[in-house]
């Protein structure tokens, strides 16, 4: 029990620091920051234990998003996105249910259910995440094209770093 809590706290701290100190600052150069935006903190939210209730997940998401917001000076945007992400997490997990179903004691990792499953999990989750985030950033329906472009540009770079880090660290729970 304690172990899991500790691990998650570590994940939270690490990813948030990474997000704020590294990826937040990547605004220089022709593409970085403007087009290829990278978000890694959703990984923390997606790796939270399977058994947690939706309400609790959403609360954690709200808090996490708020912390990121403070660093990005966009109060409320990431908070809302994280809550939305946690709301649909259960739906995504249900849609990509592996053959034997989910087990309560296994973490939501490629180690538990395979890389194919994990890739789909992260992919769908990030689509939801980036679309919701871009919608809030643009905030009007007229510029729907802008919304889609921003959303699409988040995905490749973020997923790249996420898969790299998961591959390297190989989490078990």
């Amino acid at each position: 029990m304690n172990n899991i809590v500790l691990v998650n706290i570590l994940r939270f701290t690490g990813l948030i620091l990474l997000q704020i100190l590294v990826f937040r600052q990547m605004n220089y150069g022709p593409f970085m920051g403007a087009y290829f935006r990278i978000f890694m903190y959703p990984l923390f939210l997606l790796l939270l234990p399977f058994r947690l209730s939706s309400e609790f997940l959403m609360l954690i998401g709200f808090g996490t998003g708020l912390v990121v917001d403070m660093a990005y000076d966009t109060l409320g945007i990431h908070a809302s996105t994280a809550v939305a992400l946690m709301a649909v997490r259960a739906i995504i997990l249900n849609q990509i249910k592996p053959k034997g179903g989910y087990a309560l004691n296994k973490g939501l990792t490629p180690d538990s259910y395979g890389w194919s499953w994990f890739a789909r999990y992260i992919f769908f989750a990030f689509i939801v995440f980036s679309v919701w985030l871009s919608l809030l950033e643009v905030f009007n329906i007229v510029q729907i094209g802008q919304v889609l472009i921003r959303a699409i540009m988040i995905i490749p770079a973020s997923l790249f770093f996420i898969f790299i880090s998961v591959q390297v660290l190989n989490p078990r729970n």
């Binding site: 939706s54 959403m58 609360l59 998003g65 908070a79 809302s80 939305a84 259960a90």
Partner: peptide, 25 residues
């Protein structure tokens, strides 16, 4: 996951948190 989502408390929490977030926004 299905059961977890269908809990009525979840919808309420979602609405409350989203409202707060959007007000912040």
């Amino acid at each position: 996951p299905q059961n977890l989502l269908k809990r009525p408390g979840a919808v309420g929490v979602f609405i409350i948190l989203q409202t707060i977030s959007l007000l912040l926004v």
